[in-house]
Design a protein around this nucleic acid. Structure first.
Lengths: 122, 122
DNA sequence: CCGGTAGATTGAGGGCTGTCGATGCATCGA
DNA sequence: TCGATGCATCGACAGCCCTCAATCTACCGG
C-alpha cells in the first residue's frame, strides 16, 4: 500500500481508569465515597500541571498530534513529554494510537464531559 | 446584641486567585498561554486530593459547616483540616466567614462554574 | 479574670512528582 | 542489512505536598 505509510495499528496505548469514571461521583451533591473521591482526585491530579494543560490545548487545537511535535511548543525534553502523555492517557484524558513510527495523541471528549459533570451542582 | 452570638465578622479568610480566574483560559480551544496554564493548574491541584473533594461534597450537602464539624466525617486531625480549608480558600473554591469562635465554610459556585467552562470544548 | 474551646501556624517526617540524561526497542529509508 | 528516527523506560535529583504533634492566638462562659 504505497498510498499511505500509516498501517494504522490502533493500539490504545493506555486507558486505565478510562471506563471506571464514565459517569460516577459528583462533587457538589452527594457526600462522595472515599473510593470515588480517590478516583476523581487522580483525574484532577492529571490536570494539575501547566505543561499537561498546554499539551491538552495543543491537542484540542490540532485535533491530533504526535509526541515529536509536542516537544518544541512545550519546551520540554522528549522523556518529559512521554511522561506527561502517559499520565494523561492513564487518566483517560487522551488516547494514543501508534501508526508506524509515530504515536498520535488525541483528546477523549467524553472524559472531559464526565469531569465537568463532577463539578456540577447537580 | 444578645439576640444572637454571631457578630458576623464576614472576613473573607482568603481569596487569592479568586478573581483572577473568573472567566479566562479554556483548555480545549485556544493554545492556552503559560500564565493561564499555571493558574488553571493551581485550581485543579486544589481538587487533586480525596480529602478535599470529600470536604467539598460535605460542604455542598450541608450548605455551610464549621471546621470542627469536618474533622469527624473526614477522619483527619484539626491541623490537617485547617490546612485543606486554607488550600481550598486560596484556590477560590470555598469562602470562610468567622462568626464568633467558629469559622463557617461555604462553596463558591461561580468558581466551579468557571472550572467547568475551562473543561468545555467551547 | 480564668479555664476551656475553635482554629490557625509551625516544624518535622515520609512520600509523591516533574525533570532530564542515558539507554533500549521498534520502525522506516536507503 | 545499516544507520537514523520516534518513543518508552530507567535512574537520579530536586522540589513540593499530606499528615500530625506541639504551640499560639482569639473568643466565649462563668
Amino acid at each position: 500500500m504505497t498510498a499511505d505509510t500509516t498501517t494504522t495499528t490502533t493500539i490504545p496505548v493506555a486507558d486505565g481508569a478510562a471506563d471506571a469514571a464514565g459517569a460516577c461521583c459528583v462533587v457538589l451533591t452527594a457526600p462522595l465515597s472515599e473510593p470515588d473521591a480517590g478516583e476523581l482526585a487522580a483525574a484532577f491530579a492529571a490536570l494539575a500541571d501547566p505543561v499537561r494543560l498546554r499539551l491538552l490545548s495543543i491537542l484540542a487545537d490540532a485535533g491530533e498530534s504526535c509526541s515529536c511535535d509536542l516537544e518544541a511548543p512545550l519546551g520540554k525534553s522528549q522523556p518529559t513529554i512521554s511522561h506527561h502523555t502517559k499520565a494523561l492517557a492513564e487518566a483517560g484524558l487522551i488516547t494514543g494510537e501508534k501508526r508506524g513510527r509515530w504515536t498520535w495523541w488525541r483528546i477523549v471528549p467524553e472524559r472531559f464531559a464526565a469531569l465537568r459533570l463532577a463539578l456540577d451542582p447537580g
